[in-house]
Design a protein around this nucleic acid. Structure first.
Lengths: 238, 238
DNA sequence: GGTGCCGTCGTACACAGTACGACACGGAGC
DNA sequence: GCTCCGTGTCGTACTGTGTACGACGGCACC
């Protein structure tokens, strides 16, 4: 390490005085971002006042705000709950991982944004999750190279879904509920000139349903099916 | 319209004096965000100086910076190039749309972020594209409701892929090239303790390839295959 | 009882978006 | 012709952001 890095080290001697800690900061940040105002409300100052400290105190625990965001992604990712591994078929494994991901996303909607920019960034629990998931896939007989691709595809799908869904939830949290928001959106689409946008107008009810659980399940079903099929072909060829 | 909205109207009498216009602003913004510095570099002040005007002048053409970002997404989306429609199978249509999307994303990498938060936002060319794509799907015999789901799934996949890939490209643009970046990342993964992360270490070469064109094609192939299969089942059941 | 170290945080700076109001100009009316 | 006004331009300033600097104060150790 080139810099002295006295501050960010994890070793900090048991939080000497205050009840403030890395964990407390991350918890506060997640609380803020998940409730109402979204990621934008996560501000160094807002976190500081929420924790009852000065702004600059936080910089004793993190070198920058970006590091706080990383820690948030890290923390959320570490909370991924995979059902215990027992004898699994590839299909079961794929589905379990997909569902665990989407659970994560719906619990921390705002963090999907973080993750989509930070999955590649390397941190402890993130890596651990990656290892776990890959291991799980390989255990079911999926060839390692294919396991990587499955991993990528599933994450990508889950992230895309969450990112697509998140704005609605934010809107919902900041006032009206999701159903009302959908209703408005539907009327907007339905209100377009039918001669110009016949399909959009006709399919308005379906369009607003795009970011629903149903849609996600549909996608997962499809993905799992095709992945398992591809796997079968692969294994039986070799 | 409740407000007077004298400024933002499109009608502005032919840009009276300067060569500045809505289009010029959007073009400058895209130029900035696509080159080197990414979306963060798109700043009202930076755009103004790039256009040789005062900062506040831009607010005569857009009501807020957010509106500029919307216009960027709008413009990019309007540039989507779908091959001419002729007799298509559902599979061909799905593939064509997927490829058009990813082409868009790779041409304007930074904008994938915009789109993933703004696809649902309703603007002219965005809607037009949606209508076009839906129409195309329906023309090949895909039932309208399923067409909507295919649309959602493909967009989601493309956005997820682009978002996953974009950070690398940014990094690449701001100094080293992509290959070098991948090499570093690979060594990072390979350098983890092998006892703790055996699979990550072993699969480092594959992991860095995740955000590659190949990976995208693989995903598209899978998606298209499974969608067409689902379609066949659906049509033959009814 | 010093003495030094380290966590805390008040202050300040650069930069973001944007509201307000002054300025300058081109055309309409006399 | 000059005046007046609408409209496009933009200088200034306000709020809010992330963060560097340096002063303060309490604890452990000699």
């Amino acid at each position: 390490m080139t810099t002295t890095a006295k501050g960010g080290a994890k070793g900090r001697r048991s939080a000497s005085r205050g009840k403030i800690s890395r964990e407390a900061i991350v918890a506060a940040a997640l609380e803020v971002s998940d409730s109402s105002a979204g990621l934008d409300a996560v501000t160094v100052r807002s976190l500081a006042t929420k924790l009852g400290t000065g702004t600059m105190t936080l910089y004793g625990y993190f070198r920058s705000k970006d590091e706080i965001l990383d820690a948030m992604a890290d923390h959320v990712m570490s909370g991924i709950e995979l059902p215990p591994v027992e004898d699994e078929t590839p299909e079961q494994a794929l589905r379990a991982v997909a569902q665990a991901f989407v659970k994560l996303m719906t619990e921390h909607p705002s963090v999907s944004w973080l993750l989509s920019s930070r999955v590649t960034r390397s941190h402890a629990s993130l890596k651990a999750a990656m290892e776990d998931i890959l291991q799980r896939f390989v255990n079911t007989g999926i060839p390692p190279e294919t396991a990587v691709r499955c991993y990528g595809l599933l994450i990508q799908f889950a992230l895309g879904f969450a990112a697509y869904q998140a704005p609605r939830q934010w809107g919902a949290a900041s006032g009206e509920d999701g159903a009302e928001l959908r209703r408005q959106q539907q009327h907007y689409w339905a209100g377009l000139p039918a001669t110009e946008f016949p399909l959009v107008v006709a399919l308005a009810p379906q369009l607003v349903l795009l970011p629903t659980e149903d849609q996600f399940d549909w996608g997962v079903d499809l993905l799992v099916e095709v992945l398992t099929r591809a796997l079968e072909r692969e294994t039986q060829r070799s």
